[in-house]
Design a protein around this nucleic acid. Structure first.
Lengths: 235, 235
DNA sequence: CCGACAGCGTCAATGGCGTTGGCATAAGGT
DNA sequence: ACCTTATGCCAACGCCATTGACGCTGTCGG
């Protein structure tokens, strides 16, 4: 008992602006998004965001309860954009592919949001909307309910899991990523073929793939399997 | 022109201990793993790790070049644990399934470690061994190199990504998980069918699946697609 | 045998981070 | 006029990773 579920007014932001203000929640989120795009997830700090806005970092706390609140607002904004830029064509495979890439892209900006969404049942409107959309695509395509639910679960968790992973990699300082490339050149690319023949044989292919996220490929493979299950069910 | 490329001796560790030392690389990694398991990724700091070892934080820099180097060593240790309990049977599908579940399980035991180490190229022996094993299974099974590399990449990243996600869910306090079930009961299970018909229609199935990890299903789907690609390649 | 040296550990300091409390100011509502 | 409230800045606190100077101790070459 005494679950102490925060009554939402505690985590709510302050009232809408009435007086003449230089900043605004909207302006802050947009500036934060620009910083994320230009400098990566690790480049977004309260101090730098304040500087970019020409304001003191502490001013941000007039609009958000903390950095966590800010990133949550960013996540809401991004998932909203992902959903608004998506319309079902009736073809389940491209529809799901598009939606998956959109969700992945949306959550890429903040890994914490992805982990929270996947491990908690938030019941936020946007999340409900996304879940409903996925299930609608699957069930109207003819997937039986057990298969639809199984694929839905794998689909959404895969999108969020890869987003969290890829965002963490993106958040690495540039020095670490550069040193990774050096490491690849000095170690992987020149492995003796007698001890590691398969890595040596595929080194160029590995090098080409290492820089990109594996999510698109994983998503396509999931959709492959879904097609298999649909054929088995209807046929 | 600055010094630019570090000649790899900079990122290398110091020579093995000869004199009587209180600490050791092995002891530090094990302590770090315990801290990760007990306090999550955010709980691992140089200061706290030093305190847990009864040493000054700066002492860690005698063994590792920095926190970045430490996390690489942690990943290496976990990969090694997953590999030690695995032997190839020659049947690519159960072999990969077993290996995937092993990697997932290894990282699951130490929450948040996957997200710290994935997508990094450490070039450490254990990691090379795992990569070589996966590629060997795929290539000896007859996968063409491009398909083998594509599947390898999706396979390893998916294992780590789901491990990170599932570990985060597992690390939640019992109170939070209980409140999630309440949230399910109060929100998802009683959604009005006219606004969210597909969630409402599959609510019981969704509820049953929500508690488990989607990784086994996602892994099977990835292997499904791999089988499809193998069949297409071998005619 | 002894001095040089390398491994090991500590101390103090640097610069970055999120966050807080106090204080000023300007706009509304009364 | 008043008071309230929103807004912004300043200084400070306690974290964080990392570094350089300094002492100690064991090993080894002369």
């Amino acid at each position: 008992m005494a679950k102490q579920v925060v009554p939402e007014s505690d985590r709510r932001r302050r009232r809408p602006t009435k007086q003449g203000a230089v900043l605004s929640e909207r302006l802050i989120v947009e500036t934060a998004l620009r910083m994320l795009r230009e400098h990566g997830a690790g480049g977004l700090t309260a101090r730098r965001l304040g500087a970019a806005l020409g304001a003191d970092p502490s001013t941000l706390y007039r609009y958000f309860t903390g950095m966590d609140d800010l990133t949550l607002a960013i996540g809401e904004e991004l998932i909203g954009r992902a959903l608004s830029g998506w319309t079902a064509t009736g073809d389940w495979r491209p529809d799901l592919r598009e939606l998956g890439l959109g969700i992945h892209r949306a959550y890429l900006a903040h890994p914490h949001a992805a982990v929270l969404t996947a491990s908690r049942v938030s019941g936020r409107p946007r999340e409900l909307e996304a879940d409903e959309a996925i299930l609608r695509v699957l069930r109207t395509a003819g997937f039986p309910d057990p298969a639809a639910v199984r694929i839905y679960h794998a689909f959404i968790d895969q999108s969020l899991a890869f987003a969290a992973l890829d965002a963490a990699a993106l958040a690495l300082p540039a020095a670490a990523r550069a040193s990774d490339e050096d490491m690849w050149e000095s170690t992987y690319a020149h492995l003796p073929p007698d001890t590691h023949p398969h890595i040596a044989a595929t080194a160029p292919l590995l090098a080409a793939r290492m820089k990109d996220s594996a999510y698109p490929a994983a998503l396509d493979m999931l959709l492959d399997s879904a097609g298999l299950q649909l054929a088995a069910a209807t046929g």
